[in-house]
């Protein structure tokens, strides 16, 4: 009966996810609107971003989402060990993202870029940093879930918590999949 429950996970997290998506959507809309009015400025400064790093990060997050899917599949089969392993693998991919993104920030900050530098950097830093914090929060949530899995806290019958954490992580991934083309690729 659990397996067909919809939406997966706790309903409360979906309220939170919807609110977060609303915030991101508003920010994306604002970005697109402002970009239309300042195409040249945006094009110019978009060139200063490291597309390769962002592509690597995109792959890292997609991979992590896949790992999370495997984790949920394992717990549905009552395989706590497998579930735990996949979750930590996903967290490791998240950590990879943080390191790469941190490197990008270090590069920008050493060049003296701040939120007040110009409109493009304001949006770039606001959007990516807001997302960056979400990755960290997502990792904290996945770690909490993984620890509880390790203690045998979930089973094939009762694993709402795993689904809840997975849902949140997919949201973080989804937002990046919009962020990446919007800020790095689209010119």
């Amino acid at each position: 009966m659990q397996k067909n429950k919809y939406p997966p996970g706790d309903l409360a997290i979906w309220i939170f996810i919807l609110a977060e998506l609303l915030v991101f959507a508003a920010f994306f809309g604002a970005y697109a609107f402002t970009r239309l009015k300042n195409v040249e400025l945006f094009n110019y400064y978009q060139m200063t971003l490291d597309r390769n790093a962002a592509l690597l990060n995109t792959l890292a997050l997609i991979t992590s989402s896949y790992f999370v899917v495997r984790a949920v599949a394992d717990i549905r089969e009552d395989d706590s060990k497998g579930c735990k392993r996949w979750l930590w693998a996903a967290i490791a991919m998240g950590a990879f993202f943080i390191v790469i993104k941190g490197g990008e920030y270090a590069h920008h900050f050493s060049a003296g870029v701040t939120l007040s530098s110009n409109t493009f950097y304001m949006f770039y830093l606001s959007l990516t940093f807001f997302h960056f914090m979400h990755v960290i929060l997502g990792m904290v949530i996945l770690a909490a879930v993984a620890l509880k899995v390790g203690r045998g806290g979930y089973s094939a019958d009762e694993h709402t918590g795993v689904e809840t954490g997975a849902s949140y992580w997919h949201m973080v991934d989804l937002v990046w999949l919009i962020l990446f083309p919007l800020i790095y690729v689209m010119r």
């Binding site: 915030v23 508003a26 920010f27 604002a30 939120l115 007040s116 304001m122 949006f123 606001s126």
Partner: peptide
Amino acid sequence: TPEYWQWWGSVF
């Protein structure tokens, strides 16, 4: 205060 608050403040 810096002008990015116009965006952050409006959205939230």
